[in-house]
């Protein structure tokens, strides 16, 4: 675990420093700009899906789906981040109590 933490720390810092140090024309290449724009979208969407609908190598559907449903509604209503996250947790927790 500590190796992973240090690798992530070094990698993320190197990217930040590279951004401040590289000449800006790197971005001018349209494919680089497009891929860089799309990577966070793809990763975050995949993280949502895997986090909510998988459990140890199998696909599942449980109270987490209801939590995500709450998050969608809260985001549509422009609720702040903390409301979205805490509300999703409470929704799932309440459903498990039933």
């Amino acid at each position: 675990m500590w190796t992973a933490i240090l690798v992530a720390a070094l990698g993320c810092y190197a990217l930040k420093l590279a951004g401040l140090s590289l000449p800006p024309r790197v971005l001018a290449h349209p494919v680089v700009a497009r891929v860089a724009d799309l990577i966070p979208v793809a990763l975050l969407a995949a993280l949502v899906a895997v986090q909510v609908w998988s459990e140890g190598g199998t696909l599942t559907m449980d109270a987490r789906t209801a939590g995500l449903g709450f998050a969608v509604v809260a985001l549509l209503l422009r609720a702040p981040f903390l409301v979205v996250v805490v509300g999703a947790a409470l929704t799932a927790a309440l459903l498990r109590l039933l």
């Binding site: 986090q51 987490r64 969608v72 979205v84 996250v85 805490v86 929704t91």
Partner: peptide, 8 residues
Amino acid sequence: AAVGAAFL
């Protein structure tokens, strides 16, 4: 469930 909501 909070993790998925945070990513969303």
